[in-house]
Design a binder for these strands. Structure first.
Lengths: 246, 246
DNA sequence: GTGGCACGTTTGTCATGACATTCTGATGTC
DNA sequence: GACATCAGAATGTCATGACAAACGTGCCAC
């Protein structure tokens, strides 16, 4: 059952060796070369065959175990997990998700303005009340239908955001390309009935069930970089989360 | 700014050294001895002071970085994150969550029976259609009010489950104590309006917004161990999720 | 005064070696 | 034939050593 998979290493590349190994194992799993349940060679043999040390191999395998692709068992070996794993653990925005699903999301910017932070917003962003924040309100469409009403607050001066580039790209994508490195996000997910205003904007009936999500994202340093309060049409959208226990 | 924290090691303990270190740093953060933003000693010094090697220290720190408690920066050092981090990444059940929140959840078992698996259930559990599965239906109360309607399917023979122990303990707790080690779970979260039957059971009005969650949990080996389809009263409950990007 | 460059500090990556722990399967005994 | 015991195999943990890369700071030149 041990699979012999070919792994090319480029020692001159700036990409770490353990990452090169992890990527190629991951690709072999995705392509079916390593079917679910198949066992990898043991770490010593792998290290030997690739001309690497065992810690490097272990780091590569650990990386994939953390992502839920592999399972280790002492005394047994390392196997590809049986169940198919949806990989949506990452910090993505609705825009990214839709793009990946092959949709072509469209965004209409309803509001984009610098305002003094209200008390509640200032608190979650860790700013002084009254500090300047960027408030935005957007509607996201997919397949020609309204999907979500997005409301965001950001500390001022974080990234150059205009109605134009917000129409064409997702907020997270823009933040990332402005050098903002998001690391942790808290999300609270709930549901409620649509108000008359929301119903009109989202082409639903008043009282229709909506999915609500309040999210605050933090960067490297633990500084809040984004706070959002979003509502989704429950009839058209659901959230997917994958949990991995270490 | 470097904090001198006292760490006791017990080399005779079966608890790994890196874990002992991680636990005590974690405790120092929780207790406030290491306030947000404070810097840890560098890895070499820490290793030296504790009489450990650098890889061991790194492993301890990495463990806490993965949990979102610490932040490393090359050329700078390791710091405690600024933002408060809710730690609900773990694989828990509603019952656990309520208990931790100081509530006293009550469960009423509506159904508990062995049935042949229908096609859809068999598919997600990775069983043959018609294989025997345990079907259960429960209502969960908190503070005297109905909170959720829980519907589960499990492969037969996984754990000795009776209406009695299900009334007194959570499903995940029972599974864990039966030796089932859950590792990965996929959750799909949505919302919809209550049907008349659901409304009656949950003490809501017909059409009231409900939060829906469909979850499949897998064990060590990637085998499905539980499939659930639950509905929550949106007026009384919301889900919290924390994402950490590596 | 300001910009660029060099330097020290700290984490990131990788190699080698050793022993402990745990699971599986085979062997042997009752 | 069934159960207990033992050996092999694999991952888990830990130590030591070395070099690379990135970040911040201070110095120096213009």
């Amino acid at each position: 059952m041990t699979a012999k998979l070919a792994i090319d290493l480029d020692r001159s590349s700036p990409v770490p060796l353990y990452f090169q190994v992890a990527e190629q194992i991951s690709e072999a799993i995705r392509s079916g070369d390593l079917p679910p349940g198949s066992r990898l060679d043991n770490e010593i043999m792998l290290a030997d065959r690739l001309g690497l040390s065992r810690p490097t191999i272990r780091q590569a395998i650990q990386y994939l175990v953390d992502k839920g692709l592999l399972v280790r068992k002492r005394g047994v070996g390392t196997q590809v997990v049986h169940g198919q794993v949806k990989r949506s653990v990452e910090l993505t925005s609705l825009y990214d998700d839709l793009r990946r699903a092959g949709q072509e999301p469209v965004t209409r910017v309803l509001a984009l303005e610098a305002v003094p932070a209200q008390e509640e917003v200032a608190a979650v962003l860790g700013l002084e009340p009254g500090a300047e924040v960027l408030r935005m309100e957007r509607i996201r469409y997919a397949a020609g239908e309204p999907l979500a009403l997005l409301h965001n607050w950001l500390p001022a001066g974080l990234a150059p955001l205009t109605a134009e580039n917000l129409s064409e790209r997702g907020l997270y994508e823009l933040l990332r390309s402005a050098g903002v490195r998001m690391r942790v996000a808290n999300q609270r997910i709930g549901a409620r009935a649509a108000t008359a205003v929301e119903a009109r904007l989202l082409d639903e009936r008043r009282g229709a069930p909506l999915l609500t999500m309040v999210r605050t994202a933090y960067d490297d340093q633990g500084r809040a970089v984004e706070h959002g309060s979003h509502i989704y049409r429950a009839s058209h959208y659901s959230l997917e989360v994958t949990l991995i226990e270490r």
